[in-house]
Amino acid sequence: MQFTTKLIPLAIALAFAAQASAQQVVKIGAVAPMSGPNAHLGKDNDNAARMAIDELNAKGFTLGGKKVTLQMLSEDDAGDPKQGTAVAQKLVDAHVNGVIGHLNSGTTVPASKIYNDAGIVQISPATTAPVFTRQRFPGAFRVVASDVKLGSTLAKYAINNLKAKNIAVIDDRTTYGQGVADEFVKAVKGPGVRVVGKEFTNPNATDYTAILTSIKAKKPDLVFFGGMDSVGGPMLKQMKALGINAMYMGGDGICTESLGRLAGDAIGEGKVVCAEAGGVQGPQEQGLADFRERYKKKFGHDIQLYAPYVYDAVMVMAAAMQQANSADPAKYLPELKKIKYEGVTGTIQFDPSGDIKDGALTLYTYKGGKKTKMEVVR
């Protein structure tokens, strides 16, 4: 009995020590496609989330005057909706304090209900599907403009600047690809402007000969593609092989550093125009340039696409926690709703739906195989 009695205070002390230790850790879930055709973008996202968390920990992250450690829980959704909901539930079960992700609209939207039901805040750094915030989940936010703005801006540019008249549209049937293509079609209006064909493929396809042959017969001067670079690059190659000399346009899914590599010499000079959700001008450009340099120094290569938005998503969530002096989503959510944060991608504020206010877009083309900035539009 004496041996047991001595153990009781020790057990209690260890229990309290474990509890105190647990209270010092804030868990941030980070979800992206780390496998599958968009793995290069997913790794980019994962790197940026890790970079933000490392920097916050290095500076000494405090809540209510007490130092805490941010812990990143990284998950792979493979760009697949079923896997996306599975990892979302895994993060809920792990009692994360917030989630940065997902990348693809097709995984973000179904996962968002799981986070909402669990009362967990979610900030997507890449999802552009309008339905994401139209669900009106109070804890769902995004730091990029939606497909409504992407599609309409690209449509106006196609008509007013590229003087396109005969336009063919292809999408990959994903939530993102179909969504941005539909918004583009809605906005394609003007004297003599026609959508001469609408075709679709899927994100795992490799042969587009049938749909491109059909489109070629309609003699388009511009082809719009709603989808990702993993399809867009090979599609450009097959367009060149078939002798389709039309301009090529798409949203942020194709607007990556990798598109030139994936398309090879089919990328052309100024033949591709794409829009990236986000953009900075003037003094803010230096902050983004500094981020790119730090990222490259840390990981040994350039960013792909969404890394700056992932970084800002982590930072804005952390800032809201600090303003609330709490990592409890119920307590820092009100601070997130009213936050004004100066990030590397610009000023971040959210409207009542969780969309970024006054979201910018940056138009790019490709010259010498390199992604080249054209202009920032709002």
Rank of each mutant, 00 (worst) to 15 (best):
G177F: 05
L56A: 09
M317P: 11
P130E: 10
L14M: 12
D207Q: 12
A32C: 05
Y295D: 09
A263Q: 13
H301F: 05
S152W: 01
E199Y: 15
G106A: 14
K218F: 08
G282P: 07
P234E: 03
N116Q: 00
A140L: 13
H301E: 05
P37M: 09
A58W: 08
A88G: 15
M315G: 10
A164H: 13
Q323F: 13
K367W: 12
P234L: 04
N57L: 15
G270A: 09
K237S: 14
G253P: 01
F137V: 11
V121H: 06
F132K: 05
K82M: 08
Q323W: 13
D182T: 03
A32F: 04
K113Q: 01
V31F: 00
K59Y: 06
A118N: 06
V196T: 01
T128N: 00
G192M: 06
I12N: 13
Q24V: 14
S146T: 04
I170R: 12
G260S: 14
G98D: 04
D147C: 00
T347S: 11
G119K: 11
Q71S: 07
M239V: 11
Q281S: 07
M51F: 12
P33K: 00
I12Y: 14
K296Y: 03
D221G: 05
K189M: 00
Y295Q: 04
I254H: 02
F16V: 02
K240M: 10
P329F: 06
Q284N: 05
I211M: 10
K149V: 01
T347A: 11
L212A: 08
L162P: 01
I28W: 09
I348A: 05
K237Y: 15
V196F: 04
F3I: 01
G151R: 01
P203L: 11
E375T: 07
Y341K: 13
D229V: 08
I114S: 09
I254C: 07
L7K: 09
Q322K: 07
D351G: 01
L7C: 08
I167H: 06
K165P: 03
Q322R: 07
L212P: 06
A155V: 01
A88Q: 12
V25G: 15
Y295I: 00
S146N: 05
Q349I: 07
L162I: 00
I167F: 08
L162D: 02
V193Q: 08
K156N: 02
Y295M: 03
N38I: 11
K66M: 12
K189N: 00
D76R: 07
R194G: 04
T347H: 11
I8Y: 06
I53P: 11
Q71W: 02
P352F: 10
D80M: 12
T201N: 13
P334A: 10
D80T: 10
P37N: 08
I170L: 12
L212R: 11
A13M: 05
K43F: 02
R142I: 03
G343M: 01
A129L: 09
P9H: 02
G227A: 09
K43E: 01
G65R: 03
V143A: 03
I254L: 09
I348C: 03
K113H: 00
P37F: 11
I215A: 15
F224Y: 07
A11I: 07
D265C: 13
I356A: 15
P234D: 07
D93Y: 01
K216Q: 08
